[in-house]
Structure formats: structure tokens, C-alpha cells
């Protein structure tokens, strides 16, 4: 039930987004078909500097259009994906990458999940440790007493 609902939700999302993206690509011409795929991939991982929660493929701002045309031009002139990414970083900074490299500025971003897990593990340990201690607090004689009580209260066997 849940799976089916999730699947249909994903389908709706995908069908809402994909046709748009594809309609857009058609207006960009490439020398080879595999270049069109590279164009789609690059404009998806490059961020629009103006409308910051969209990538270049999704945004309609002037700068996103310019940069899409620039990516198209660079692909057609035979530049590699890496060269194109470098071109963009040189001008717009690492901000333009949706998948930023690990460095001083992005350290917190990359390490935070591990920190969160550490905090979680700590919480498990911290809150779990009290119940543990209670059991260990019985002295040998107290333990003996407890065993005795439990043995005395054994329910009578049914058969």
C-alpha cells in the first residue's frame, strides 16, 4: 500500500518535471547526440547564481539562459566537462557547483553528517547507561535474596 502510493507519487513528480526539461533541450543544437546528454548532465549539476535553489536547466533567469548557451558553446567547441566546470568556477566561484569539493569552506558541510551520527551514538550511550547500572548495583547477598524470591513465586505447573 505504502509502496504503491510512493511509486505513484514519484511517477507524478517525474512526469511533471521531465517533459519540461526535455522540451528545453530541443532548442539547443549539438554536433553529436552524446553532447546533448552531457549538456543535460552539466546544466543539472551547475547552479543558477541568481535563483539559488535552481540549477541552470530549470531556471528562466537571464543569467541562467546565458550560462546555458555558454555551456552549449563550450561543449560544441570540444571542451571536456571538467574544463567547462572550471570555466564556471573561475567566474562564479565554487558556489556554482551543486556537488562542491571538500575544502576549508565546505568542511562543515561535509563533516556535519558524521558529527550528527556521533551525537546520536553518544545519546544512545548516555541515555542507555542508567538502566544498565541499576542491574549492577545489587550486592551478591542482594542478588541471592532476589533469586530466592523469584524461586518462591514460581507459578505452579499446570499439568
Amino acid at each position: 500500500m505504502f509502496k504503491a502510493a510512493l511509486a505513484s507519487m514519484l511517477f507524478c513528480l517525474a512526469s511533471a518535471v521531465l517533459p519540461l526539461a526535455q522540451a528545453d533541450i530541443k532548442s539547443y543544437e549539438f554536433a553529436e547526440p552524446e553532447m546533448a546528454q552531457r549538456f543535460v548532465d552539466l546544466t543539472t549539476v551547475l547552479r543558477c547564481p541568481k535563483c539559488q535553489n535552481q540549477n541552470l536547466a530549470d531556471s528562466d533567469s537571464i543569467i541562467a539562459k546565458d550560462l546555458r548557451a555558454q555551456v552549449q558553446k563550450l561543449i560544441n567547441t570540444g571542451q571536456t566537462d571538467r574544463q567547462i566546470t572550471e570555466f564556471m568556477v573561475q567566474r562564479y566561484g565554487e558556489f556554482i557547483l551543486y556537488d562542491p569539493p571538500f575544502n576549508k569552506a565546505t568542511m562543515v558541510l561535509w563533516l556535519m553528517p558524521f558529527g550528527m551520527v556521533l551525537i546520536g551514538l553518544w545519546a544512545l550511550w548516555f541515555f542507555g547507561r542508567k538502566t544498565h547500572n541499576q542491574g549492577a548495583m545489587l550486592t551478591p547477598s542482594e542478588q541471592q535474596q532476589l533469586d530466592q524470591l523469584l524461586a518462591d513465586n514460581q507459578p505452579p505447573s499446570r499439568d
Partner: peptide
Amino acid sequence: PKGVLGIDLGVVG
């Protein structure tokens, strides 16, 4: 008019 220098300057808007 085409924003060519704009891209080289890193103009956003």
C-alpha cells in the same frame, strides 16, 4: 547586449 563580458566578469544581475 548578449552578456558576453558579463559572464567573464561573473555578473549575476
